[in-house]
Amino acid sequence: MLFRRIIFCALFIGFLSGLLFTAIQSISVSPIIFAAEQYEVTEPEVAPVQGHHHGEGASSEHHHDQEAWGPNDGMERTLYTLLSNVLAGIGFAAILLSIMSQLQLKGVANLSIVKGLAWGVAGFIAFFVAPGIGLPPEIPGIEAAPLDNRQTWWLLAVVASGVGIGTLAFAKGAYKIIGVAFIALPFLIGAPHSAGPEFTHPDANVVAILSDLHHQFIVASGVANLAFWLALGALCAWALNRQVLNDRYAEA
C-alpha cells in the first residue's frame, strides 16, 4: 500500500535526518540560544512564598520552569530536542515523499539522487528562506508581533513559495508566471512586525550583544537547515525509487 510505504520511509528518513540536524544544531545553533537566554527579561516575579523559596538563587532559573513543565537543561533538554527534530524530519519527509510520489506517478517528475538534492534546496527555500525573509529566525528575548499573526503569515509564506517553486519547475512556458506570482504573494501582503524595539532588555550593551548573537544565529540556523534539507531531499529521492514506487513492493 502506497500510504504505508510513504509513512514507513518517512519514519526512517526522519530519524536519520533528525540525527544529522541535532548534531549540527548542538555544535553551532543551540549554544547561541543558550547564550541569548541568559539575557532574557523575566516577568516580574510574584513575591516568593515565605520560607519555602531560596529567593536569591532562583532568579537565574529558566523562566519556563515556573509556568509549566519543561525539560531540565542538559541531557534531558537535548533529548527532547532530538525527539522534536526527528518528528519534524518525519513530517517533512512525509510531505516530500507524498508530493514526489504523486508527481512521479503522473509522469511529471523523474527523481534521482541529484534531483532529490534540488528538491532539498527547494524545501530549504520554501520552509526556511522565504518565511525567514519576512520573519527572520529568532533568538529568545526578541520582541515580535503577536504569535498568531506570525504563524498565519509563516504558513502562507511556506505554502505559497512551495506551490510557486513547484509551478516554476514543472509548468510549461508562460504558465511559469503563475509560479512567480505565488512566490511574490506573501511579500505583497507583508509580514507582521512589532512596532516596538527588537529587544526589550533595558541595557544598551546587552542589546548590542543580543543583536550580534542574532546575526550569528541567522547564519548558523541557515547552514543547519540547508544540511537538513539536502539530507531530506536526497534520502527521499533514494527511498522513492528504492521503496515507495518500487514494483517489487507494490502489491496488486
Binding site: A10, F21, Q25, V29, S30, I33, H64, E67, A68, W69, G70, P71, R77, Y80, T81, L83, S84, N85, L87, A88, I90, G91, F92, A93, A94, I95, S98, F127, F128, P131, G132, L135, P136, P137, E138, I139, P140, A144, L147, R150, Q151, W154, S221, A224, N225
Partner: peptide, 30 residues
C-alpha cells in the same frame, strides 16, 4: 506529515512548546 509538523512547531500547549522549544527556534518557526 502536516499534522506532525503542527504538533512540533505550532501546538499552543506549554509543555509541547517547552519540549520542542529549541527545535522551533532552530527551524525558524514562529
Amino acid at each position: 506529515g502536516a499534522v506532525i509538523l503542527f504538533a512540533v512547531g505550532f501546538m499552543p500547549v506549554d509543555a509541547a512548546h517547552n519540549a520542542a522549544h529549541d527545535t522551533r527556534h532552530s527551524l525558524a518557526f514562529p
